[in-house]
């Protein structure tokens, strides 16, 4: 069957099944299990209303548990097994093996670099753009254009930036803009930027910063607009300059939003895979954890170490997870 027809059929079947499930399960509940008539009508209605939320929740909870909660446990279990020994329990041997791998430490170092640089830079740029565009007439267009990379895939962005970093032999016209500028400013040899160890990490980070700045800008722009104008006016009357107003009045008031943006970008950064995979595939010391994991899982076929490195990513996310859950619990109480 042609995939497009299959897809269409899946939409119809999927949506139909969902609707049918919700519709008929409610009917079964109300008409047959706890009918709202006869001697126990009142009690039956109450009982039906106790069960009903779970009817509504069941498909989602089932999918969430199977596709996200169970894998966390299963990955943890796999990280303690060795597939080559018939899934024998090997304790922390996979972790020991991973910690002895210099590539892993390279990935760790790079990930930490990414975590320091990308969220900070994106948030800072986002804040600057949000503030600058707030009061100019064509600010909305400017925001739209800076926001645009959000819609571009990491792979597409990688191609875009690979062209920027392209290098041609010395003496010919450079078609990568970075080398063109470098030569124009008096550089003699064009540089293959992505192969310069250590610094190439930053050239990869630029891609993610380019994408995430728009996100930071949008959220922070909304926060800036939410600031009560009288606080700003009071500061102007007291003789504060524009920079003082920005740093001492506005930024403190949107601090919680800044933290939210920061953590959201941090999570995105931790999981970064496509950019490294498409641009260098971890060569020239640009490995990161997610790509290291992919390498172990699908090239080396080493599920033990692969799972162990996935658990490391999970551990790095956990503080944010706990903090989010804590805040939501506080809110709903």
């Amino acid at each position: 069957m042609h995939p497009a027809i299959l897809g269409l059929a899946t939409i119809v079947v999927g949506v139909g099944t969902c609707l049918a499930y919700f519709y008929f399960s409610n009917i079964v509940l109300d008409r047959f299990i706890f009918p709202a008539k006869g001697p126990n009508a009142g009690r039956n209605i109450n009982r039906a209303n106790v069960v009903r939320p779970w009817l509504f929740l069941f498909p989602a909870l089932f999918a969430l548990t199977l596709y996200l909660a169970y894998p966390v446990v299963e990955t943890l279990r796999l990280s303690l097994l060795d597939r080559d020994q018939g899934n024998a329990f090997v304790g922390l041997a996979n972790y020991q093996q991973m910690f002895a791998d210099p590539k892993f430490w390279e990935a760790m170092r790079n990930n930490v670099l990414w975590l320091i640089v990308v969220p900070a830079t994106s948030t800072a740029f986002g804040l600057i753009v949000a503030q600058l565009t707030d009061r100019i007439r064509w600010g909305s267009i400017a925001k739209s254009l800076i926001f645009m990379p959000m819609a571009i895939s990491f792979v597409g962005a990688s191609v875009i930036w690979k062209l920027v970093y392209d290098a041609r032999p010395a003496g010919t016209d450079q078609i990568g803009v970075l080398n063109a500028i470098y030569i124009w400013f008096g550089g003699t040899e064009p540089v293959t930027w992505l192969t310069v160890p250590f610094w190439n990490n930053f050239f990869l980070m630029v891609v993610l910063i380019w994408i995430q700045t728009g996100f930071a800008m949008v959220i922070l722009s909304a926060a800036l607009r939410g600031i009560p104008e009288d606080t700003v006016e009071a500061a102007i009357i007291d003789g504060a300059g524009p920079f003082q107003i920005f740093f001492k009045i506005k930024v403190p008031q949107i601090m919680t939003t800044i933290v939210v943006v920061w953590t959201t970008i941090t999570i995105a950064t931790l999981k970064v895979f496509d950019i490294v995979f498409a641009m260098t595939n971890g060569q020239w010391e640009t490995q990161v954890l997610a790509n290291y994991m992919f390498d172990k899982l699908f090239r080396a076929n080493d599920w033990g170490v692969g799972s162990a490195s996935a658990i490391i990513i999970m551990l790095m996310v956990t503080p944010i997870l706990v903090w989010n859950v804590y805040n939501v619990r506080k809110e709903t109480k």
Partner: peptide, 30 residues
Amino acid sequence: MEFPGRALLVAFVVGLLVVPLQLALIPLLK
């Protein structure tokens, strides 16, 4: 809808919001 454990379920969903999907690859492929 009112039911016991609602707040807990909301927290569960928020927790899963940040679980890296890298963890799900092998178990789900299996």
